[in-house]
């Protein structure tokens, strides 16, 4: 499996709105996180949901975000709390 990112790397989730079916929750769009692990590669749901073949398969990553970065002051727990979301590779870009 060819993956663009590896564990520990800092990434940003693409901020794009997307009308069709997709699996990137709104609240992490545009946010920076860290690749925690690679889950494998899976059919692309954005094509499979409409009768497509879902190919090429997309690597899927568990990406970890700091709650503070996601919700700012709305988050009422300690700074160390985090949120892990599974995100397909084409939704991620390298963070600078």
């Amino acid at each position: 499996m060819n993956t663009k990112f590896s564990p520990g790397q800092v990434v940003r989730v693409r901020p794009d709105a997307h009308d069709g079916h997709h699996r990137t929750p709104w609240f992490i769009k545009g946010k920076m996180g860290r690749i925690h692990s690679v889950a494998g590669e899976f059919f692309n749901p954005e094509s499979r949901a409409y009768g497509g073949d879902g190919l090429p398969k997309q690597p899927l990553y568990a990406v970890e975000f700091e709650q503070r970065d996601v919700w700012a002051t709305e988050y009422r727990g300690p700074d160390s709390d985090t949120l892990v979301v599974d995100i397909y590779e084409h939704w991620l870009v390298k963070a600078n």
Binding site: A39, L60, D81, L83, D86, I87
Partner: peptide, 14 residues
């Protein structure tokens, strides 16, 4: 507060 809470949103194929 010393315990880190890690929420996991199982948004995809895991």
């Amino acid at each position: 507060q010393d315990i880190q809470v890690r929420v996991v949103d199982s948004s995809a194929d895991q």
